[in-house]
Design a protein around this nucleic acid. Structure first.
Lengths: 219, 219
DNA sequence: TGATCAATTGAATGGTGGTTCACTTCTTGA
DNA sequence: TCAAGAAGTGAACCACCATTCAATTGATCA
């Protein structure tokens, strides 16, 4: 009875594939891509090293897939947050907040997605991932300048610079061996980053941020 | 006759060591640290693989030394440019210009110093290298806010964000497989970056930049 | 010339971890 | 119960380089 059997087999195969991906993803979230060796991934599923190769073309592809799904999820969350906001200034604020706070939440994963060297396949995914953020930012900044909420400027360059500013400001906090930042540190960092970016874009309505600034970013 | 002989030996040894370092450095400048294998370094000096180990503790140390000298030189150049400038705004401008234009000049080396993954020893050097730039920027920004040339802000965070903005804006141009930017591209990029950073810091005298802006940073 | 030692050589070694594949185990349908 | 093939297994294999070290070379001095 080939039909039911095939269907069952396919489903189980799909499940197993998912399981391997999930295992790899959790290894990455815990200790970065480096920790996701084929042996470790297989072990997590009580599978053998060899079986991994009947579900994936090789480790590089597997990790690229892990990257894509993790990064894709981040982008989705960011997009949703942006979509829920109103004017460009607020949309950009949503982007910055989402990106920053999620990175500070899952620091290891953030580091893996943003900085960890892996392999060319993952590097290609990372390029697209960064590009998605930059595109999102460019869109917002373009709208903002058109609406007169931001000073006239090259939206693409500005978006890249904003992403760079955020990443670098975060780098110290999400580096693998850095200590966990306190809630207060996080708030201060976030506010500082927001102020910096809004000034950089020449935002007209910095007032918007004031209500959120309990402790303030300047010292 | 131990004295003269020892002296001679020492000098030759020193020369050889220098030669190996220079060889490694030129390999890095051409194709990144990855290309600087022990075999390649030795070959450049018509030396044997083994002899490298009588001058260095191992490849990692050797590369760390290469990194330090190359990075140290960059910092020196930047510091000199900053020192030659006057008010904080101008000093910061000098820093941005120097950093950006030198990176666009030696793109491969810039990429190696800023981004290429190598090994923990080099990573440690890189941390210090980035820190030097951030310190330099922090100093300038601190002076600038004190002098009322910049808006009040956390100088350290701002400096990190500035370095990040520059790096990210440059990343597209200095990535190993990216096409060489035209002189015009370079000017546009530089100006865009400068404007962004000055706005971010709330510089009072953006007028200073106007004279240099032939084509303008906004589009 | 020969003894001595520093410098040099490069083939062999070693560690890491991804990849393969001959073999075993399991599932299904007759 | 059995044939047939799908799925799973993991030890062996491989590629890549850094590193080592026994053997060789070369320079110095009695």
């Amino acid at each position: 009875m080939p039909y039911r059997q095939t269907a069952l087999t396919r489903k189980n195969a799909e499940d197993k594939r998912e399981g391997l991906l999930r295992a790899a993803r959790s290894l990455v979230a815990a200790d970065g891509f480096k920790a996701a060796t084929v042996a470790a991934i297989a072990a997590r599923c009580q599978a053998s090293v060899g079986s991994v190769y009947s579900y994936f073309d090789g480790r590089d592809r597997l990790l690229a897939e892990v990257f894509r799904s993790a990064a894709g999820h981040e982008i989705d969350v960011a997009r949703a947050a942006v979509a829920a906001a109103g004017r460009p200034v607020e949309r950009l604020d949503a982007l910055i907040r989402t990106f920053t706070s999620r990175a500070l939440q899952g620091r290891r994963m953030a580091w893996a997605l943003l900085f960890e060297p892996v392999n060319p396949a993952v590097e290609a995914e990372r390029l697209m991932y960064r590009r998605s953020y930059t595109d999102l930012g460019e869109q917002i900044i373009g709208d903002g300048t058109a609406a007169g909420e931001f000073v006239p400027q090259d939206a693409r360059l500005a978006s890249a610079a904003v992403m760079g500013a955020i990443s670098e400001a975060l780098a110290g906090w999400i580096r693998p061996d850095s200590p966990e930042p306190s809630a207060d540190d996080q708030r201060t960092a976030l506010d500082g980053i927001r102020m910096f970016c809004f000034r950089a874009l020449g935002a007209r309505h910095l007032a918007l941020s004031a209500q959120h600034l309990a402790t303030g970013g300047a010292r």
